[in-house]
Amino acid sequence: MASKQSEKLIIAYKAVLGELGANPDMPLPDVRALFEHMGDVTAEPGGIDFIETAAAGVPAMWAVPKGCTEDRVLLCAHGGGYSFGSMYTHRKLYGHCAKTIGCRALIVHYNRSPEHPHPGPVNDMAKAYRWVLDQGITPNHIAVIGDSAGGALAITTLLRLREQGLPMPAATMPLSPWLDMDGGGASFQGNKQVDALVAREMLGDMVKMFLGENGNRHDPLVNPLHGDLRGLPPAYIQVGGHEVLLDDSRDLAEALRRADGEVKLDVFPEMQHVFQFLAGAAPEADDAIAKLAAWARPKLGL
């Protein structure tokens, strides 16, 4: 049974949907401001310095836990449908991840759609990765992590790096990845009544901003399920059991296995989309992040 504390995320998601429903013509800056409060449910991790920087011209934020191993780095892609969310909304979440693993995190504030449609976000993530390499961090000491749209970027960034001839990082950790722009998974219908945030209509609007009216939804840098996933680093996927996007995670795990990849998939019963937002506030989120750390530390040589 889900904890009482986990209900905080359901309340937060319903509040966002309520505001959007009451104001269907809300301007994009106001919608973004609304989503900036998503990080409010995350407890302050404490013991972390947050330092804003620029990674090859892309705004970013370092999360540096006290006493961490500084030559290991999490490269973090925030969620928000490629149009919302920021390094600020996800500062605390990825701070918790970095602190539990014992390394630094670089949270990339990639340029968002519709001002910067595809392939803007994935190109910015690749720029940030190359910049981390230029700081003297070796590829085997880097892990990529992302949630929702950022969960897709945790895979598509690898495909872009391969195109550019760059070495692969040690690992990748997609959290509740959003891959299928058509919403074709059976979980879209099966979890429709229990997912507190994601709905087909919302995703349709985000797709239009990200790809335009005629963008290619089957571009592997949009949906990596249509790409060649051979040779990618080990992947650890986490997803909530009540998500309409549950099948995206299952399909990704199966595709990676077919490509002879190392993959671990954990489905957390009754959990919502990116329930890790509740880090420090709900036991399920803390358990998930502890599992991420236990898996990632040996991959990073910690």
Score class of each variant (00 low, 15 high):
residue 232 L to P: 01
residue 89 T to D: 04
residue 225 L to C: 12
residue 196 A to L: 04
residue 263 V to I: 08
residue 265 L to S: 02
residue 108 V to E: 04
residue 142 I to N: 00
residue 114 P to F: 13
residue 281 A to N: 12
residue 280 G to P: 09
residue 241 G to W: 11
residue 13 Y to C: 12
residue 170 A to V: 08
residue 229 L to D: 07
residue 227 G to N: 08
residue 81 G to R: 00
residue 75 L to T: 10
residue 302 L to Q: 06
residue 60 A to D: 09
residue 243 E to L: 12
residue 23 N to K: 12
residue 117 P to V: 13
residue 115 E to G: 11
residue 90 H to V: 14
residue 218 H to R: 12
residue 98 A to K: 04
residue 167 P to W: 13
residue 122 V to E: 06
residue 9 L to Y: 01
residue 214 N to Y: 13
residue 143 A to L: 14
residue 158 L to S: 03
residue 242 H to F: 12
residue 53 T to W: 09
residue 55 A to W: 03
residue 118 H to W: 11
residue 281 A to S: 13
residue 86 S to F: 03
residue 7 E to D: 09
residue 267 V to I: 14
residue 3 S to I: 09
residue 18 G to H: 13
residue 123 N to E: 15
residue 213 E to A: 15
residue 255 A to H: 05
residue 266 D to N: 11
residue 229 L to A: 06
residue 110 Y to Q: 06
residue 118 H to K: 05
residue 190 G to H: 08
residue 101 I to F: 03
residue 156 T to F: 10
residue 186 A to Y: 11
residue 176 S to N: 06
residue 59 P to S: 05
residue 287 D to T: 13
residue 216 N to T: 11
residue 219 D to N: 15
residue 89 T to W: 02
residue 36 E to A: 13
residue 169 P to I: 03
residue 219 D to W: 09
residue 197 L to M: 14
residue 188 F to T: 06
residue 21 G to L: 02
residue 245 L to K: 05
residue 14 K to T: 15
residue 122 V to T: 13
residue 69 T to A: 10
residue 153 L to S: 05
residue 97 C to K: 07
residue 299 K to V: 09
residue 245 L to T: 06
residue 41 V to Q: 01
residue 265 L to E: 02
residue 32 R to S: 08
residue 201 E to D: 15
residue 189 Q to Y: 06
residue 136 G to C: 08
residue 247 D to K: 00
residue 40 D to H: 10
residue 288 A to V: 10
residue 94 Y to R: 03
residue 252 L to E: 05
residue 115 E to T: 13
residue 200 R to V: 14
residue 18 G to L: 13
residue 276 Q to N: 07
residue 188 F to L: 10
residue 258 R to F: 07
residue 130 R to H: 14
residue 209 M to Y: 07
residue 68 C to K: 00
residue 24 P to A: 03
residue 127 K to L: 15
residue 221 L to S: 04
residue 289 I to C: 02
residue 12 A to K: 12
residue 190 G to R: 11
residue 128 A to P: 01
residue 30 D to W: 03
residue 17 L to E: 07
residue 159 L to A: 10
residue 45 P to Y: 04
residue 186 A to E: 15
residue 92 K to G: 01
residue 129 Y to K: 01
residue 7 E to I: 00
residue 234 P to H: 08
residue 21 G to Y: 02
residue 234 P to K: 07
residue 274 V to R: 02
residue 143 A to M: 14
residue 186 A to S: 15
residue 54 A to L: 07
residue 124 D to Q: 11
residue 244 V to C: 01
residue 263 V to C: 10
residue 2 A to R: 09
residue 259 A to D: 05
residue 144 V to D: 00
residue 38 M to E: 04
